[in-house]
Structure formats: structure tokens, C-alpha cells
Nucleic acid binder design. Structure first.
Length: 109
DNA sequence: CATACCGTCCAAT
DNA sequence: ATTGGACGGTATG
């Protein structure tokens, strides 16, 4: 059962707003949904009750790093996401976003 | 209802 | 640069 709260619903929407080849950070995402905590987003994404309908791989840390998606910073799933992201147009280098210009500000744009 | 846990961010050193 | 603490929300007892 999808026990999504208002908070998670916002995260879901924000994620859908991200165009292909664009990435967002937990903080930017949180700012967009008026959430003052990116921590909760990371945790909610990790649990991802709506996975894989939600492209949580498009959400990165404020460092422009992947930060770890399913609880792993270095894993085969992470590498797979990097592959998908690079296919979308987002290039990650050693787990870090190669082009910060790929960052989209949901609250701005 | 309270507590514990999760994961990230911010701040301090 | 590195480490620790704090924050917010979720989940569970």
C-alpha cells in the first residue's frame, strides 16, 4: 500500500518535473517542496515507496556527488545509474557530476 | 505516543 | 580536509 504522505507526494512531483539530462540535489528538491530537510528526502528516496516510478537517480547530493542511492555509494546499481544518467546526457565522473550545469533548480526554473 | 534509525547538511576544528 | 553534531521525516515498538 502506498502510504505516501503529503511530503512524499511533493518529492514525487518534483522528481517528475526534472527533464531528461538534468539533475537536482536533495537540497534544491527540498527547497522546491518547501522541505527544510534534504535528509528526509534522501531517506524517502531510499525507501522509495513509488520506485521505480520515481527517478531517484536524478537526485544527487549538494556536493554534486551521487551520494548513494539505495544505501550504497559504490555498487553495481550505482554504476548502472551512472550509465543511465550518461545516456540521458548527464555525465558523472568518479561518482561526481562532471557538469554542474546539468543541475536544474526546480525552485528557480 | 515515544523511541530508534536513516541519510544528508551544516558547522567546527 | 576531516570529523562531529544537528535536522527532518519515517518506521516501528
Amino acid at each position: 500500500m502506498k502510504k505516501v504522505t503529503d511530503f512524499q507526494a511533493k518529492v514525487y512531483e518534483a522528481l517528475k518535473l526534472i527533464p531528461e539530462g538534468r539533475v537536482t540535489t536533495y537540497k534544491l528538491l527540498g527547497k522546491f517542496i518547501d522541505c527544510k530537510s534534504s535528509q528526509a528526502i534522501g531517506q524517502a528516496l531510499k525507501k522509495n515507496p513509488f520506485a521505480p516510478d520515481v527517478p531517484c537517480h536524478r537526485v544527487i547530493k549538494t556536493d554534486l556527488s551521487i551520494g548513494g542511492f539505495y544505501g550504497e555509494v559504490t555498487g553495481e546499481k550505482i554504476t548502472d545509474k551512472l550509465k543511465i544518467l550518461s545516456k540521458e546526457g548527464v555525465i558523472f565522473e568518479d561518482g561526481f557530476l562532471a557538469d554542474e550545469k546539468q543541475l536544474i533548480d526546480l525552485a528557480k526554473r
